[in-house]
Design a protein around this nucleic acid. Structure first.
Length: 480
RNA sequence: GGCGCCGUAGCCAAGUGGUAAGGCCCGGGACUGCAAAUCCCGUAUGCAUCGGUUCGACUCCGAUCGGCGCCUCCA
């Protein structure tokens, strides 16, 4: 069984239920990184949003097939990788230099995803492995009269596609007015036509093609790989808002020009991130990569939570204060989890305000899913979780929850954590070691040697373990 | 110029034509050897401003102020 989930669709600008082409299955294409440098937290916000999207569908009962492209041929990649090569370098040497750069940063990127607990896509195609498919696609568009060659390059004729502009909601006249003429591409029929294949230039790696040596334009890779790996009808395609135009608009032109029908049903875009109220920019000194933050002592999962606890379609103002708030919020959830894993210490009731834990739990689950199903409303979903925590903490203080009730609560925490990945069950491998410290402290307390008892507690704290004395005299601990 | 978004407490933030969720921080209290965790109480007569529609608006309409995005580099 799968839940009905709705998402804002950029095509219609409305929140609409996602109705998969194949029942119970979701094909998802997300635009991945251009691998020439470290990803910054703005990039990572988008990938975290897409992970939230994917995990929500999975937790909602869908089989998700995810394809994320790795752009490994592009202007900046060429610029950075070819800098050290002599003018007479061979094409093979140029390709080698480019591959060395992109493989390095691809590995670093995948490493960052793992650090943030972002699930890896089933398909991670590199653009350079699909040059043949891109060429075929361009030839197909040429045959359909939607593409034309000029001096070794090939361009897309947007006048040939009536729906051009449907995603970005731009009309052709508005584009004409706003378009800037790129002196490098003056040979186009119309300044708004975009390049599918770029004629090779000296000093650049190139591939052979029917139009001579050259390299693919930026947009064509996503159309070629998306159609190859996910098919002619894709359920969801997503990226950052900046990709709406021109990138995704052009993908639609390429794919639908070729297919003759709708390619992607649901386009979903994540908003940008600002830093301390300003645009992130190297010149402002507020430009951060994940590694920068880790060096500053930031817990990557706190970053994950800070980003995912805000709505994906709102500009997020990243701040270190916000990160602290995220860390403290997580502490509350994790402490509650630990409490549910242990046994109840509360009295046996009766309590005037007692509730029925399993009923209250189902209410929270219902609220949680209603919020997630409504365009991934994480702030509201988390509110449902926090009010549950409050109510059950109070309940457990007065009328201890039973083992079965605690297990049911833990199952819900796991269900939510399958999406947020921030409060997993922790390994109990430290148990024996910690218990020895607790025993030493117990002995000191029995002798009313408070100084020694505090010293042991401080020792544990230095190891990242926080102790909690319970009413019945037992001692619990958690990672602090 | 065109298209669009946003402005809710110290900070973050949801929400809705019917009388302001949640998190963080802060203050007081309970519990504790002291803590930690937890609980209880308190913290926006008001949702940028000014008009309008309405029995009723933070929510709809208009205007104004402020911040932001896109209109072929961009997550």
């Amino acid at each position: 069984m799968h839940r009905t989930l709705s998402l804002f669709n950029t095509l219609t600008r409305r929140v609409e239920p996602v109705v998969p082409v194949e029942e119970g299955k979701i094909s998802l294409y997300t635009c991945g990184p251009t691998v020439y440098n470290f990803a910054h937290i703005g990039n990572l916000r988008t990938f975290l949003f897409q992970d939230l999207l994917k995990r929500t569908f999975r937790a909602g009962g869908y089989a998700v097939t995810h394809c994320m492209n790795i752009t490994d041929v592009e202007d900046k990649i060429i610029r950075d990788s070819q800098a050290g090569l002599p003018a007479e370098a061979t094409n093979e040497q140029r390709h080698g230099a480019m591959t060395a750069l992109t493989e390095r940063f691809t590995a670093i990127f995948l490493d960052d995803l793992e650090t943030l607990r972002i699930q890896k896509a089933e398909f991670l195609p590199r653009a350079t492995a699909y040059i043949g498919q891109m060429i075929h696609l361009i030839q197909d568009l040429e045959a359909k009269g939607l593409a034309y060659p000029r001096e070794g390059s090939v361009y897309y004729r947007i006048a040939g596609l009536p729906q051009y502009g449907c995603l970005a909601h731009l009309d052709r006249e508005g584009m004409q007015a706003g378009a800037s003429v790129d002196a490098d591409e003056y040979e186009r029929d119309s300044v708004t036509d975009f390049v599918l294949w770029k004629a090779g230039k000296p000093g650049e790696p190139s591939w052979d093609s029917p139009w001579g040596p050259g390299r693919p334009g930026w947009h064509i890779e996503c159309s070629a790989m998306g159609m190859e790996l996910l098919g002619e009808r894709v359920d969801i395609h997503s990226g950052g808002v900046d990709l709406i135009f021109p990138h995704h608009e052009n993908e639609i032109a390429q794919s639908e020009g070729c297919l003759g029908h709708r390619w992607v049903n649901h386009w979903v875009h994540g908003e940008f991130l600002m830093v301390e109220g300003q645009k992130m920019a190297k010149s402002l000194g507020n430009f951060f990569t994940l590694r920068d933050l880790i060096e500053k002592g930031v817990d990557p999962i706190a970053l994950r939570y800070a980003i995912q606890s805000n709505h994906y379609r709102k500009v997020l103002n990243f701040s270190f204060e916000g990160l602290r708030a995220a860390e403290n919020s997580l502490k509350r959830i994790r402490a509650f989890r630990k409490r549910m894993e242990g046994e109840g210490q509360g009295g046996g009731g009766p309590w005037a305000e007692a509730l029925v834990p399993l009923v209250r739990l189902e209410q929270a689950r219902t609220e949680f899913w209603a919020a997630m199903a409504d365009d991934l409303n994480t702030p509201e979903a988390l509110a449902a979780l926090f009010t549950l925590i409050s109510d059950l903490n109070a309940q457990d203080d007065h009328v201890a929850l039973t083992r079965d009730e605690r297990n049911a609560v833990l199952a819900f925490l796991d269900e939510a954590d399958a999406i947020f990945a921030a409060w997993p069950q922790e390994a109990a491998s430290l148990d024996a070691e910690v218990e020895a410290f607790i025993e030493a402290r117990r002995a000191a307390k029995a002798a009313k040697n408070w100084a020694e008892a505090d010293r042991v507690r401080d020792q544990l704290k230095a190891l990242g373990i926080v102790l909690e004395d319970r009413k019945d005299g037992s001692v619990g601990w958690r990672k602090g």
